[in-house]
Design a protein around this nucleic acid. Structure first.
Lengths: 133, 133
DNA sequence: ATTCCTATGTTAGATTTTCTAACATGAACT
DNA sequence: AGTTCATGTTAGAAAATCTAACATAGGAAT
C-alpha cells in the first residue's frame, strides 16, 4: 500500500508536540536534523512540521544514542537499513566505499554490538504507530 | 480497547494543521468551539491542541453544515449520537425535553433527511483514522 | 594533563503563529 | 426594514519557533 506511506510521511506535528512525544529537547531535534538524520518539512513561515516517520526515526535515534552510537554511526545504520529495505545486494561495497578505516572499524563494532538492538528499535518504531487507530 | 480511545483523544495538532486537514478556516473552527461542538485541549500558553477525535468531529460538522444543519442541530445530533453510543434507552424523552416545538420540528426533519448521511459521515469519520497506519 | 570534539544547554533577537475581541457583511428569515 | 447566523477581516498581544552564537561536561586523542 503506497497510501500508507503517504500518510506516514505527511507533515503534521509541530516541534512542541514532537518534543513531548519523544521526550527530546528542541535542541536535540534540531541537532539531529543538522546531521541529516531527519528532514522534517517546513511551513511557509519556515517552522518545522514532522511526520509520523520523522517521529519514529527520532525514537530510533534516541534508542541508539542510549546505546552509545554517535551521529555518524546512526547515519550509517539508517543508510544500511534503507538499502536493506530496497533489496539492493551490492550494499556492502557501495555503502562503505567512502569511509575511512577508522570509521569502518567503529561501524562494524556498532553493527556487532547492536545488531539485535536494531530489531528492537524497529519494534519501538511501531510504538508510535500504535498511537493511531 | 480503551487504549485506542486514549490515543484518539490525545491532543497533538495545531490549528494550522487542522485547518489544512479539514479545509476549514480558523474562524470556523473557533466558532464551532464557541458553540461547544468541539473542546480542543490547550497548551500552557493557551494555544489549541486538537486530537484525532476533534478532527473527525470537525469533518462531521463540515458535512452537516454542507447539508444545511445549523449549530443547534449539530449539537443535538452529537448529543443523540453520544447517547446512542452509551446504550441509553430513554434518550428520546431525555434529549428532547428542553427543545422548543420549532427546534423539534427542524431536528426531526434533519434526522429524516440525513439519516443515511449520518452514517456516511461515520465513514467519513474514519477517513482520517485511515491516515494513521 | 591538556587539548579537541561531540552532544547538548542556554540565551538573544527576529519571525511566525495563534489568541481574543471587535467590527463588517451577505444570506436567510420574520 | 430589521434580525440572526455563519463567516470574513483586522488589530494588538502573547506564545512558539527560528537561527546563530556562546557555554560546557565528558570522552577521546595527543
Amino acid at each position: 500500500m503506497s497510501g500508507k506511506e503517504i500518510r506516514r510521511s505527511m507533515p503534521l506535528f509541530s516541534i512542541g508536540t514532537v518534543m513531548q512525544l519523544t521526550e527530546l529537547s528542541a535542541r536535540q531535534i534540531r541537532y539531529y536534523e543538522e546531521h541529516q538524520l531527519i528532514s522534517p518539512a517546513r511551513t511557509e513561515g519556515n517552522r518545522r512540521l514532522f511526520s509520523l516517520n520523522d517521529i519514529d526515526r527520532l525514537l530510533e535515534i534516541k534508542d541508539l544514542i542510549d546505546q552509545g552510537v554517535n551521529m555518524a554511526g546512526i547515519k550509517q545504520l539508517f543508510l544500511v537499513k534503507e538499502q536493506h529495505a530496497n533489496g539492493k545486494e551490492q550494499h556492502e561495497t557501495k555503502v562503505k566505499r567512502d569511509l575511512t578505516d577508522e570509521e569502518l572499524r567503529r561501524l562494524l563494532r556498532n553493527e556487532m554490538l547492536h545488531a539485535g538492538r536494531l530489531n528492537r528499535s524497529s519494534l519501538r518504531q511501531s510504538d508510535l504507530s500504535r498511537f493511531f487507530h
